[in-house]
Computed example of a mutant assay.
Amino acid sequence: MPDEATRKNLALEYARRMNDRDVDKVLELFSDDVRFEDPVGTPALEGKEDLRRRIAWSMKCDVHEEPGRPVTSMDGRWVVVPTTVTVYIPTKLSFRIIGVMEVGEDGLSHHVQAFWGVTDTQVGEGPQPTGVAQFMAVTEALTRMGDLAREEAEPV
């Protein structure tokens, strides 16, 4: 099993490669049968081709990831890292997530879970609405992002 430093580095390397905007380099960090849940509670992506589309779309949304300090597990399989993920297209959205990554004996990520919710999301800059107003603002921004993803997926 990969040691703690290797697992921690894998999580940090993912963020670095996302910020470098190189889809193929990001995909090198994942097993062919990767399961990717972002956010947990929505349908999981299965395999590298599904993940390729998601990563390419994220990069088109001008994604930037700022990882915090990774923490590992004693069983040699997991690394957890708090991360602020910001996209700027179609509007600025910042997500405070907890990323959980299962690392296989091959040193690749086999399962990723991103935990975040509406109250972990900020739309734009400055003071944020609360309660129903925040829910509506986040939902509208996420819907616009989803529309962008569907437009990208439709054949021309």
Rank of each mutant, 00 (worst) to 15 (best):
F36C: 05
F36W: 08
E37I: 03
E37S: 13
E37V: 02
D38A: 11
P39N: 06
V40T: 14
V40Q: 06
G41P: 09
A44I: 03
E46Y: 09
G47P: 03
D50T: 12
D50R: 13
L51D: 04
L51Y: 04
L51W: 09
L51N: 02
R53P: 01
R54N: 12
A56S: 14
W57V: 00
S58H: 13
S58M: 15
M59C: 05
K60V: 00
K60E: 11
C61L: 14
H64L: 08
H64I: 11
H64N: 11
H64D: 01
E65S: 03
E65D: 03
E66Y: 06
P67K: 07
P67Q: 10
P67E: 15
G68W: 05
G68P: 10
R69M: 14
R69F: 11
R69Y: 07
P70D: 12
T72I: 02
T72Q: 06
S73D: 15
M74Q: 13
M74K: 12
D75T: 12
D75E: 08
D75Y: 11
R77A: 05
W78K: 15
W78A: 13
W78F: 13
V79Q: 10
V81T: 08
P82N: 12
T83A: 04
V85P: 00
V85R: 02
T86V: 08
V87T: 13
V87S: 01
V87D: 02
Y88V: 04
Y88N: 14
P90W: 00
L93P: 01
L93I: 14
L93A: 08
L93G: 02
L93Q: 15
L93D: 02
S94F: 04
S94W: 06
S94L: 05
R96K: 10
R96I: 07
I97V: 13
I98E: 06
I98P: 05
G99I: 03
G99K: 10
G99S: 13
G99W: 01
V100C: 02
V100I: 09
V103C: 07
G104M: 07
E105N: 14
S109H: 00
H110G: 08
H110T: 08
H111M: 04
H111K: 11
H111I: 01
V112R: 04
V112S: 12
A114D: 04
F115R: 04
F115Y: 14
F115H: 07
W116H: 14
G117R: 07
T119Q: 09
D120E: 11
D120P: 06
T121C: 11
T121V: 15
V123P: 06
V123I: 14
G124H: 03
E125S: 09
P127F: 02
Q128V: 07
Q128N: 13
P129Q: 06
P129T: 08
T130M: 13
T130S: 15
T130Y: 12
